[in-house]
């Protein structure tokens, strides 16, 4: 295998104190979100540091995905704010937020995230190309991650021609290929059997830790959450940072 891809200086882990006085990479403060008359998020205050793998746990409908969408700047909170490297996401323009999601953030979802018309290699190279790299460079970079995720052999296949586990590894490679600072993973193993799911988690967390990326991992499965460093529990829209609980480092 080739050398482990490493983060570019622009996205290197940043543990220096920010304007808000914290060393957080991502910081949530008093987040609330309501859809119609349904409160989806009723309070979230916590920080995530560079290189941390943080599980967001809770029952179905508890507000986990809403929290992830707010943290990633996909939906704006009704009140409260999300700081990324000390910058308030809601103070950014749509174009700036889109650029952030393309360059600084990576995403892995449960399924349906690969472009069916593109090969696995083209899919994995997509965020690198969108960030402005030429095809050759983007594909070379993507191949490093496909190798790391053990799916380089299927790089010329289209998503419809590979198994669910292989497709999910390609999705992880794609999420990491642009060397993001934060990977948002929403039930990334939800559609996989136990063995495949565990392998994907192992590869995702190892690769993210090696590259210094933080991972926000939404899951309702304890065995998946066990790959994290700590957990945030969401119940009835309220997110609680459990690292303050006894026995948790």
């Amino acid at each position: 295998m080739s050398a482990t891809p490493t983060p570019s200086p622009a996205h290197a882990p940043d543990a220096a104190p920010h304007a808000d006085g914290t060393s957080a990479l991502l910081h949530a403060e008093g987040l609330h979100k309501t859809y119609g008359s349904t409160p989806a998020l009723a309070g979230a205050d916590f920080s995530i540091r560079a290189g941390e793998v943080v599980a967001v746990m809770g029952p179905s409908g508890s507000g986990k995905s809403t929290l992830l969408h707010c943290l990633a700047g996909i939906v704006p909170p009704d009140s409260g704010r999300v700081l990324y490297r000390g910058r308030d996401l809601s103070a950014l323009s749509d174009a700036q937020r889109s650029a952030l999601r393309r360059g600084d953030f990576g995403f892995v979802f449960q399924f349906g995230q690969l472009v069916p018309e593109l090969t696995c290699l083209e899919n994995a190279a997509l965020p690198v190309r969108l960030a402005g790299a030429g095809r050759k460079q983007a594909e070379a970079q993507a191949r490093q991650w496909l190798e790391r995720l053990e799916v380089d052999d299927i790089r010329h296949h289209r998503p419809g021609q590979v198994s669910g586990g292989q497709g999910q590894r390609v999705a992880v490679a794609r999420a990491l290929a642009a060397r993001p600072s934060v990977v948002f993973a929403d039930e990334p193993t939800g559609a996989l059997d136990s063995l495949n799911g565990e392998r994907v988690m192992q590869l995702l967390t190892e690769a993210a830790r090696d590259s210094g990326a933080a991972v926000v991992l939404v899951t309702h499965e304890a065995r998946v959450a066990a790959y994290s460093d700590r957990e945030i529990v969401v119940r009835d829209g309220k997110a609680r940072d459990m690292s303050a609980m006894a026995g948790v480092a």
Binding site: R223, A226, E231, V233, M242, M245, A246, V248
Partner: peptide, 15 residues
């Protein structure tokens, strides 16, 4: 909550 954290701590160690 405390028990959940303790269980997860051990699950992380075993993982």
């Amino acid at each position: 909550d405390t028990q959940r954290s303790e269980h997860l701590r051990l699950m992380r160690e075993l993982t």
